[in-house]
């Protein structure tokens, strides 16, 4: 979308940070965290495709693959999926905006489409994902990105990495489709950087929006250009909405990680069969409207920005 979204990605050379960090660059708010999944890279990419439904995602109603392309030369798989999520607008946003603009029901209950794109590069051991909301982008655009990679230390020697992966594939039963084979704990891990970029365009005209985006890339020039007094009320509304979105993203991110962990744990315990059986149960629970045995999930159903 803009330079501002792309810029804050951490480079592979940066050591993982322990705590999530937050920044505000003019009209953009940004959340980032680094984590390590104690599972091999191939398993994590598979879990990403199989992460809905899980007990932490009962607000996800459907997932469809709308495009898929395999580049055999590069061994890269590109996937575009469309998720439909039950959405509850934060009461803070409801207070700020006229309902006619939101198109939601009186309580703010609504459904939201999320477009997700991912590229898995199996040769290099990377998976890049990006999810964005399709509607209400003028009010708040939320872009979530994740970069998964095999730890760099394993990548010193390409041939070794490839050999290592082949071995991992053989060792890990999760790849045996249709069998109950298990994944052994080999100590391999996958690094992930997750980020959420929030950008409210409310009250902006297109040109001004472009200016803000360009400004975010050149932060120091921006305050003068914007004209503080002229934009004050629009700016404060945008900041309020972005702050609400940011707080929600901060709350939902841990749930997203827990959801991935549930799927990975099922894979470890009983292979792909266990993952699919778990999904079936979760789906039944969602359709039945009573998420089983996960009481805290009920409380968190509104946190759906993942």
């Amino acid at each position: 979308m803009s330079d501002s979204n792309r810029r804050p990605q951490s480079s592979p050379a940066v050591a993982p940070r322990l705590e999530p960090w937050l920044t505000t660059v003019n009209m953009v708010k940004f959340y980032s965290s680094n984590d390590i999944y104690p599972y091999p890279f191939p398993a994590v990419t598979l879990a990403y495709f199989l992460r809905y439904p899980n007990p932490y995602s009962t607000h996800v109603l459907s997932t469809d693959t709308i495009a898929r392309h395999y580049d055999a030369d590069k061994q890269q798989l590109t996937t575009v999926r469309l998720h439909l999520k039950r959405s509850k607008l934060p009461s803070g946003v409801l207070k700020l905006l006229p309902r006619s603009l939101l198109g939601a029901s009186g309580s703010g209950e609504s459904q939201a489409y999320i477009l997700e794109k991912s590229v898995v590069d199996i040769t290099n051991g990377t998976m890049e994902t990006e999810s964005r909301n399709l509607e209400f982008t003028g009010i708040l655009s939320v872009v979530e990105r994740q970069a998964f990679r095999r730890p760099v230390s394993q990548a010193d020697d390409d041939a070794k990495v490839f050999q290592g992966m082949e071995n991992a594939v053989r060792r890990h039963g999760f790849l045996n489709f249709g069998s109950g084979a298990r994944v052994e704990d080999s100590g391999e891990s996958t690094e992930v950087n997750s980020s959420v970029t929030l950008h409210s365009h409310i009250g902006e005209k297109w040109r001004k929006r472009k200016a803000a985006e360009d400004g975010a890339a050149a932060e120091e020039e921006q305050p003068e250009k914007m004209g503080f007094f002229k934009s004050w009320s629009t700016g404060s509304l945008q900041r309020s909405i972005e702050m609400i979105g940011l707080n929600r993203a901060k709350r939902s991110q841990p749930n997203a990680k827990e959801g991935m962990k549930v799927v990975l744990e099922r894979m470890r315990e009983g292979g792909l069969v266990a993952v699919l059986e778990g999904m079936r149960q979760d789906r039944e629970a969602i359709l039945g409207g009573h998420p089983h045995a996960f009481s805290k999930d009920n409380q968190r159903r509104g946190d759906n920005d993942e």
């Binding site: 979308m1 979204n5 792309r6 990605q9 480079s11 592979p12 709308i66 890269q76 590109t78 575009v80 469309l82 489409y113 477009l115 794109k117 590229v119 590069d121 290099n124 990377t126 890049e128 990006e130 964005r132 399709l134 509607e135 990105r145 970069a147 990679r149 990548a155």
Partner: peptide, 24 residues
């Protein structure tokens, strides 16, 4: 949803080329 989807994907096409490039 088709038109909304088409629009969104066209909007993102050029960015995709940038964002989705593997980092190493």
């Amino acid at each position: 949803i088709d038109s909304m989807l088409k629009e969104a994907r066209e909007d993102n096409r050029e960015n995709d080329a940038e964002h989705m490039r593997p980092k190493r």
